[in-house]
Amino acid sequence: PDPAPAPEAYRDGKPFAVMYIPRFGGGWDWPVLEGTKVRTLQKGLGHYSSTAALGGGGNFSVAGHRRTYGDPFKDFPKLRPGDAVVLTDGTTWFTYRIDKKPYRTVPGDVGVIDPVPRKSGFDGPGRYLTLTTCDPEWGSSHRLIAWAHLDATQPVTDGKPEALRS
C-alpha cells in the first residue's frame, strides 16, 4: 500500500478514527481516541500515544476493555489469521490483516507494542497494528494481544473497502 499522508497530531482523549472488525459482527464500530487513560477507555478504544500514527511506519497500537464500558473487545479471543481490522480517519480507509491467533502475556510485557513487536513473528520494520485487552474476561492478571499488518489503503471517496462490504 501507498504510505499514508502525515496526520495532524492526535489530541489527548479526543477521537481521531473509527475501527471496524467484521469478525465481531455487523454494527461493530468503535471510536479510537488518543491515549489509554481510564477516562479515555471509558469512551472507546485508546491509542498508545508512544506508538506509530494510523497507517504510518511502525506499530499503531490500540487498547480496549473486554468487559466494561461497552465491552468493545468482548469477542477478542475469536480473532483469527486473515481477519480484517479496518480503520478510517475520515479521509482514508486502512485495512489491516490479523497474522495469528491472540497471544496471552502479562501486563508488564510492554515489548508487544514496540515498533517491531516482540513475539509477533514480524522480522523487520513495517506498518503494523497491535490490539490489546485484559484477560481473563472479568480480570486483569494477563493481556491478550493480536498483531496485524497493513494490507491495503484507499481513499474514503472510493467507498467502503472490500472487507466491509457484505
Rank of each mutant, 00 (worst) to 15 (best):
P1W: 08
A4C: 14
P5K: 12
K14R: 10
A17I: 05
V18P: 01
I21L: 10
R23P: 00
F24H: 07
G25V: 09
G27D: 05
W30I: 03
L33F: 07
K37N: 13
V38C: 02
R39V: 10
L41I: 14
Q42R: 15
K43N: 14
G44I: 02
G46Q: 01
S49P: 08
S49R: 15
T51M: 09
A52Y: 03
A53H: 13
L54S: 03
L54V: 07
G58W: 03
R66G: 00
R67V: 01
R67Y: 11
T68M: 13
Y69D: 14
Y69H: 12
Y69I: 02
F73G: 03
F73C: 01
K74R: 14
D75Y: 10
P77V: 00
K78V: 07
R80C: 08
P81N: 13
L87T: 04
T88P: 08
G90R: 15
T91M: 06
W93D: 05
Y96W: 14
Y96M: 12
I98M: 15
K100Q: 11
Y103G: 00
R104G: 02
T105P: 02
P107Y: 01
D109R: 09
G111N: 13
V112K: 02
V112L: 04
P115W: 03
P115L: 07
V116W: 04
K119R: 10
S120R: 08
R127C: 08
L129E: 03
T130Q: 02
T130S: 14
T130F: 04
L131G: 01
T132F: 03
T132Y: 00
C134Q: 04
D135Y: 07
P136C: 09
P136L: 11
W138I: 07
S140C: 11
H142K: 10
H142W: 05
W147H: 15
L150M: 12
T153V: 14
T153G: 03
T157M: 07
T157A: 14
K160E: 15
K160C: 02
A163H: 06
L164A: 07
